[in-house]
Amino acid sequence: MRNLLQLILRYSNFLLLLGLEVVAFVFVLRGNKYQQVAAAGAANVVTGSIQLMSDNIASYFRLRADNAQLLEENARLNAEILELLNGQTRKRDVNDTLSTRNREPLSSQEAPYIRADLDYSFIPARVIAFSEDRHHNYITLNKGSRDGVTPDMGVIGKDGIVGVVQSVSTHFSVVAPVIHEGIFISAMIRKNDYMATLHWHAPNTRRAALEDVARHVDVQLGDTIVTSGMSAIFPADVPVGIVSDVSLGEGDSYYDIDVALATDFNSLRTVHILNYTHRAELDSIQ
């Protein structure tokens, strides 16, 4: 007994090292498990505020580029409004009673691929911090629970899918983007509605892999990949990317497909958080 005690005392520092490393390892495992980020929940307020400050300073240096982007977006929106107005008057001329459901003409102006009749509302948000050189990247947004954001909401940008909200504090939320190895996106090939899974691997942030496409499926270079709509997180037809490489080994039953992602995460500044209006109802029956 005395010997054992002496042994423990003698190696106490080493044992402490082991203990602390085990604690750290448990943190890593818990944190990586679908990034619940227990620590970040509380820390979001502190780190988020600092990152917001950092972004506020940095945004001055981006003003020119941001302006150009806004102008471009403005021009496109104007064109769309014109198109819509034309379409509406024409429709009214042809058939007054065709549309019985009264919907707003455009629910999200900055996501032109979203149809107006979807049951989603949009929360605009700004990217205040992001990473892209890790295996588990993240994006911090300046909207939180106060603005109605909850975990598991989808996030889209002007070019397409961005990611899924992971944790939320009062003023901030952390998003696991598509370029996060723990995120699997239910996607489909637009031309034939074939469902597959999009999964990203480090390091190339512009490419992801499309998995589970069987060899009998017709898939070509340049095919458009969109979301499948098989969850309440994203509606169908949000752009995901374009097929950039297809290969099929001799005995393989599945393709190896590379997808050039629609969203450039490096230049992402503004996004929209998707809020599915009937989510509580859907959750209660599923």
């Binding site: 090292l17 750290a24 390892f25 448990v26 890593v28 944190g31 980020v37 620590a39 990152q51 952390v174």
Partner: peptide
């Protein structure tokens, strides 16, 4: 806290401090 990935830097720093 700043990298939203608990445990990673903690493991490295403990080892360095040891």
């Amino acid at each position: 806290l700043f990298t939203h990935a608990p445990g990673i830097h903690m493991a490295g720093c403990v080892m360095a401090a040891y």
